[in-house]
Computed example of a mutant assay.
Amino acid sequence: MADQTRNSKNLGIRMYEDEHQAMLDTCEALSSPDVKVEASLLLTTAAIEEAARLGFTPSAAGSSVRRRPGTWENDPPPRDESFKRRITITIHPLHFQAIRSAAEWAGVEVPHFLRGSMWRFIANRQRAEPRNTKLRAIEVPAKYRT
C-alpha cells in the first residue's frame, strides 16, 4: 500500500454573520453553470492574492519580500460582538505557507488575515466586474471600497 500524503490543510475560521453572508453571496456571484466557486477557493484565492501583494508567494516562501508596508491596511476593524459562524476550509500547503507568512508579518492570526483579504478581494472584484449585479449588491465595509 502506498504511503498516504497530505495535500491539504484544514483550517477552522470564525466569522461574523455579515462576513459569512458576503462570502456565500460572493461564491454565488462568481459561480456559473460550468464553475462553482466554493468558500475554500474564494478565501484561499483572496488570501494568496493579498499575500503576494505583500511579497509572500508560494514560490518565494517569504524569502524575497519586495515591499513591506508599515501596517496591513486591510485588517478588519475590531467589533464588540461575538462571532456567529464557524466554517472549515481546505488550503493547499504551498498556499498555506505563503498565507501564514503574510499573516505573521501583518501581526494577525491566519483566520483574521483570511477575513480581511476576503473583503479586499470582494471590493476589487466589484470594481473589475461593474456589470455583475449579484457581486455589486454585496455590502463591503467602507475602508475596502477606496
Rank of each mutant, 00 (worst) to 15 (best):
F113T: 02
W105P: 00
T71L: 10
S59C: 03
K134I: 00
R6C: 05
Q126L: 12
R79I: 00
L42E: 04
F121A: 00
K134V: 00
Q97V: 01
R136I: 15
E17S: 14
E129R: 09
T88A: 09
H92E: 15
F113D: 04
A60L: 12
M23R: 06
R100E: 14
P77C: 01
A128M: 14
H95M: 12
R115Y: 01
L114R: 05
E129W: 13
I91S: 03
D34N: 13
A47W: 05
S64F: 13
E73K: 14
R120S: 10
T44Y: 02
R125G: 00
G12A: 15
T44P: 02
A106R: 01
A52F: 06
L135I: 11
Q21E: 14
V65R: 05
N10F: 13
P141A: 09
E28L: 11
Q126W: 13
H95N: 15
M1P: 05
G107E: 09
I48H: 01
A102Y: 08
R79H: 13
R145H: 01
P111K: 08
E81Q: 11
P76Q: 07
R68Y: 00
Q97W: 06
A60D: 14
R100D: 12
K143E: 13
R145L: 15
H20R: 10
D75R: 15
W72K: 01
Q97Y: 10
L24F: 01
T57P: 07
Q126N: 04
A98I: 07
M1S: 12
A142K: 13
G55V: 08
L30N: 04
T57W: 07
G116D: 05
F121G: 01
I122S: 04
N74R: 07
L30H: 06
I122E: 02
I13L: 15
I122V: 15
R6F: 13
A51T: 02
V65M: 04
L94S: 11
F121M: 05
D25P: 00
V65A: 03
P111W: 06
T5R: 14
A51E: 07
G55I: 10
A2V: 06
Q4K: 14
R86M: 11
T133W: 09
S63Q: 15
